[in-house]
Amino acid sequence: MTVDKLTGGAKRERERLDELLSAYLDGQLSEEARAQLEARLAGDAQLQSELEALRRTVAMVRDLPRIPVPRNFLLPQTIAADKRRVAAARFRAAGFAPWLRAAAALVGLFLVITVAGALLYLGVPRMAATPPPREAWPVQVTAVVERTILAEEIAVTPEALQPAPEEAPMLLVVPQTETPLPAPKIPESTTQVPTTDTGMRAAFATPATLPTPTSLAAAAAPGPQPVPDTGELEQAPRYVPEHERTPVSRWAIPLLWIAASIGVLALATVAFLYFRRRR
């Protein structure tokens, strides 16, 4: 009778019994358990034959002859040099480990920034269709900025959320800062109140200012999809025609980030493969 042919309960019971008998053979039972088993054995011929079969099995394994070694397994003297080389390689790898970790962190950072950039620059047109409640905006945007350490580039603070004129996205705004426009030269300045002008100057002086949610929405959906309620803000940047600026502004920065991310990833991969092979 084999264990396979037994049902689950009987199999477990048999395994439990085997454990008892096996420990008994090795003298590993407690005094009490041993006495109990011996009392049970005295009146159970079946159990006795099980014990005997187990005892003979163990004896046969123990009697297996020792096999002489086919050869000596002595190590060559060169292994000492190998060991030193392995140790040195490990040391080098350990020395470079912080660099690899830093590279990995950088890749992670790039990834986060890329995702955030994509959200900020590409996700906005869709948001413009259904603008969320104004109150919810500052929290959401600042949270993203904090996470991505974009602060030096785009600073969204509650103060920056005052109604500001629409700024051109960064790439095109930057050159403009070097040629500040004198206020009288603006023909529409009659309709534009001075506050708008100063607001504009402030924006140019600090190109790091991020558009407010509403202006962002307006900036991201210009030209082809006119946004009805931001007409006034659309008027401001007459010096940069919209049809020139929109496609570049929307794609350039995310593409730059993606290219940089791929570059960092490639560098990290090459470094990893190089050091792994050296090891």
Binding site: D18, S22, L54
Partner: peptide
């Protein structure tokens, strides 16, 4: 115990 039992079987 399980190994010995299996070998016996």
């Amino acid at each position: 115990a399980r190994a010995r039992g299996k070998l016996r079987d």
